[in-house]
Simulated assay, not measured.
Amino acid sequence: MQFGFSTNAFRDYSLPDAIDHIGAAGYDGVELLFDEPHLYPETTTEADLAAVRAALADADVAVSNANAFMLTAIEGFHHPSFVEPDEAYRRRRVDYTHDALKLAAALDVDTASIEPGGPIPDGKSREWAEDRFVEGLRELAETAADVGVDVLVEPEPDLLVETSGQFLDLLDRVDSDRVGCNFDAGHLFCVGEDPSTALEELLPYVEHVHIEDIPADRSHEHTQLGDGAMDIDGFLEALEASGYDGFVTVELYPYGETPVATAEDAMAYLEAHGWA
């Protein structure tokens, strides 16, 4: 396994500076935030891409994944979503994701993680929201095939797709080998699943992994490795035993005031436990 760190904790830093710090902390890779202030597809220039390529080369790190989940450039983490009642507003999320896939291809990134539909709108049924998300994913799967970048749905608490079972139901409906799973161990722990058990079910579709710790009450709070109640080592042992050989990205976006120390401390945990 290789370990990365997400730049969504470094939103107060330029992207080249974030890459430099993550590389210096000892990571093999970096997850790129496809949102402001880093690489928002609508405003990213060729000069921006050149600067990112140079920073990656200087830091000697690879790109673990493109994070096309957050969308604060328009409204917030979850809006606009794939299940907005307003069709034009919903379209903005779909179009953004098309552009994110093309941007990932320009940087030779294999995967882009996305939100799992979004919050089910008031007054709308789960079935209605599922239909809208499936429509969007089928459309995006065509772009994914064209540009060679897989779309990874990331189950998350309180959104349309929360559990491993809901993910599998969704995948069955979309029926595309260009749609996979961004397996966030902490998210599945939050909704009452054992991440190691869930991994057994989802492994054929897992192309990228997020880890963070989670408090004992299973609230959705990304917590420094070792500071919560998850069995981080048990999960990584299961992941290693599964034969997974992709990236595991540490995602600690709430630590925006101390991203450098947070990245270093997470790496110190991984090193002390024999993972890195």
Rank of each mutant, 00 (worst) to 15 (best):
E237N: 13
L15Y: 13
G136E: 03
D17I: 08
D131Q: 15
D131L: 13
E251N: 08
D110F: 04
V151E: 10
L15S: 02
S125C: 10
N67F: 13
I22T: 02
A9P: 11
L202P: 12
D58P: 09
V63H: 11
A47E: 13
D213E: 08
A229W: 04
A238S: 14
D122G: 09
D172C: 05
S14W: 13
D213H: 12
A47Y: 00
A73V: 01
E46Q: 12
Y27T: 00
D175W: 12
R173W: 02
H273P: 00
D194S: 15
A62D: 05
I19M: 09
G148H: 08
P155M: 03
Y89D: 11
N182Y: 14
I211R: 00
V149Q: 00
I211T: 00
M1V: 15
E193R: 06
G186A: 08
A229K: 03
A129V: 10
A216V: 01
G165N: 05
V63R: 04
P157D: 04
T258Y: 01
V109I: 11
S176R: 00
T258A: 15
Y40F: 15
E36K: 07
V248M: 03
E142N: 02
G256S: 13
D99Y: 03
A185I: 14
A57T: 15
P195N: 12
A25Q: 12
A66L: 09
A62W: 07
D172E: 10
A62I: 10
E154F: 06
G26W: 08
I120M: 09
L49C: 06
A216W: 07
S164Q: 10
G123L: 09
F189S: 09
P116Q: 06
F82P: 00
E264W: 07
P254D: 10
T143H: 07
T197L: 12
F167T: 00
I19P: 12
G256C: 06
A66M: 12
A100F: 11
C190Y: 05
P85Q: 15
A55H: 11
L202N: 11
T72Y: 14
Q2P: 10
A66K: 00
A24V: 06
P80T: 14
L239V: 00
E75R: 14
H98L: 08
V206L: 10
I211M: 06
L225Y: 07
A47V: 06
S242P: 01
P37G: 08
H222D: 06
A18C: 15
T262Y: 13
R90N: 07
H208M: 04
Q224M: 15
P41F: 04
V63P: 01
S113L: 13
A68R: 00
L236R: 04
L140M: 03
G23V: 00
F183T: 04
A185M: 06
T197H: 14
R11M: 13
H38N: 10
A241P: 02
D245F: 07
V83Y: 01
E257C: 05
H79D: 05
G148I: 02
G243P: 04
D28V: 05
D227I: 08
Y13A: 14
V153W: 04
